[in-house]
């Protein structure tokens, strides 16, 4: 079954299949989206249909699904039948993980593969946790933002465990690429859900420090800004009142470049009742180098005004935000 396609012996000439009558696909007399199937593909699927119809859950059916999956890893029916066969045969599921890994290497963005992997790992239980974390790590080393791999990893942590080193894993990935939003998201997942950490409240101080540092290193990086806001989810008052939040905005503003996210956060703070000191007013005034108009006394309006100009892709949004400002912030 590992043989090259060129040497593949047609199934019709293999004695072990002589008792099976292949079942061709009935596309109808004049089908649309007609695919010019390769011959091997057609033959494999014809035998697959025959076995699927007969619900033959045998070792040869298992190997046939393997061939069919190799031709088209997106065929969910084939995967589904494969699971039924694996169960009937009480097959070695560790081997199955190896099979999935081979397929996943060239098709790492396919819903079926990952769904199957989840099923297999779920059957194996907590013993599989380490292997699954290693597996997703491997896939993420090829593409650190693979959505399916991250979903799988989160499922493994929740269903099978292995939380202990997860924050460290996030830290390493963020060290490699601080712009990796998937790693930030995973960090949030760990901080909020790990049974070994103190949850959002317990972790907030250290997380805020970490995030502020990331912001100061790259103020144009949206990820830590959104993360910072997320750290105060469901506790808006703390967010508004925490001087660490307003001061990081002020620091970035005073650099006078890459300050869109700082302004945006400051605007949100104002909308939620933050009372700015004169320093903020001055910092915003200083951003308007060539504007002849005096600084709007309403700081929220002044911020929107600056954003309209420096963030012109979102000019309409900032105008709209301006029109929605609460009175006299």
């Amino acid at each position: 079954m590992e043989s090259d396609e060129g040497e593949r012996l047609p199934m019709s000439r293999r004695p072990e299949w002589s008792d099976v009558t292949p079942l061709p696909q009935d596309d109808g007399p004049d089908p649309v989206v007609l695919i010019d199937y390769k011959q091997d593909f057609t033959e494999t699927m014809d035998y697959f249909r025959a076995l699927y119809r007969a619900q033959e859950r045998s070792p040869r059916a298992l190997s046939l699904t393997q061939e069919a999956i190799r031709f088209n890893p997106g065929n969910y029916t084939v995967w589904h039948f494969r699971r039924q066969i694996l169960e009937s045969l009480d097959a070695d599921l560790h081997e199955e993980l190896d099979f999935v890994e081979r397929i996943a290497k060239s098709n790492s963005k396919n819903y079926q593969i990952w769904h199957h992997r989840r099923w297999v790992a779920g059957k194996l239980g907590t013993d599989a946790a380490i292997k699954e974390l290693e597996f997703t790590k491997k896939i993420l080393s090829l593409d650190a933002k693979n959505y399916h791999a991250w979903s799988h990893r989160q499922w493994v942590l929740q269903a099978l465990g292995g939380w202990e080193d997860e924050l460290d894993f996030c830290r390493k990935l963020l060290e490699e690429d601080i712009f990796n939003n998937s790693a930030w998201n995973q960090r949030y997942f760990v901080v909020t859900r790990s049974p070994f950490l103190g949850g959002l409240k317990g972790m907030r101080d250290s997380e805020v420090s970490y995030t502020v540092e990331a912001i100061m290193a790259n103020p144009e990086n949206e990820s830590p800004w959104r993360y910072l806001r997320g750290l105060y989810k469901d506790d808006i008052q703390s967010w508004v009142n925490d001087p660490k939040v307003s001061s990081v905005c002020l620091k970035v503003l005073s650099i006078k470049s890459n300050f869109v996210f700082a302004l945006s956060m400051l605007l949100d703070l104002l909308c939620h009742g933050f009372r700015p000191s004169e320093e903020f007013r001055e910092a915003i005034g200083a951003l308007r180098t060539s504007d002849p108009e005096p600084l709007d006394s309403d700081l929220g309006k002044a911020i929107c005004h600056v954003l309209q100009h420096v963030d012109s892709m979102r000019a309409n949004y900032w105008m709209w935000r301006k029109s929605k400002l609460p009175v006299a912030v």
């Binding site: 007609l34 695919i35 010019d36 390769k38 593909f41 699927m45 088209n72 890893p73 997106g74 969910y76």
Partner: peptide, 11 residues
């Protein structure tokens, strides 16, 4: 009509 490379979209 679609070419053989569309086998992966057969489902």
């Amino acid at each position: 009509q679609l070419g053989p490379s569309f086998c992966v979209l057969d489902a």
